[in-house]
């Protein structure tokens, strides 16, 4: 009853917390050409876990901003303008905070939950695995 498969259907969070689940969801998103949303989601988690004392946090924040938000990528398209502005200003003013991507991550997560995750649970990738 508590197999990985039954956990995957519980929530997006439980899917992404499982190695095989996250891997399979990634394959699905690659086919759907929106794997950037998942990479961004994980990047936000990784950023939050970084040591504040490290000087490289500014570099990483800038790099995440450039790669996913500054250009008009699929991530940028799913974010509210105010959220993008907030991150842009934080990077510009070098006001780096471990929670600076939290709002953006929540918005991307909500979109994934409502769309890609539901599609994944009825996708060939998932059903073949099952």
């Amino acid at each position: 009853p508590d197999s990985p498969l039954s956990r995957w259907t519980k929530s997006l969070h439980s899917l992404l917390g499982d190695q095989d689940g996250a891997h399979l969801f990634r394959i699905f998103l690659e086919r759907e050409k929106c794997v950037d949303t998942l990479d961004f989601w994980f990047a936000c988690n990784g950023f939050r876990q970084m040591d504040r004392q490290e000087t490289k946090t500014l570099r990483v924040a800038k790099a995440i901003y450039k790669r996913y938000i500054e250009n008009n990528s699929i991530v940028a398209k799913q974010l509210k303008p105010a959220t993008k502005t907030y991150i842009r200003d934080s990077v510009k003013k070098q006001q780096i905070d471990s929670a600076m991507f939290d709002q953006a991550q929540t918005e991307i997560q909500t979109t994934m939950e409502e769309n890609a995750y539901q599609m994944f649970l009825t996708s060939e990738v998932y059903l073949d695995y099952v």
Partner: peptide, 20 residues
């Protein structure tokens, strides 16, 4: 010094679920 892409990739990898 690694590239920006490398630092983002490391950030992603650090947050990925590990082997059970």
């Amino acid at each position: 010094l690694d590239s920006e892409d490398d630092s983002v990739q490391r950030c992603i990898t650090s947050a990925m679920p590990k082997h059970r």
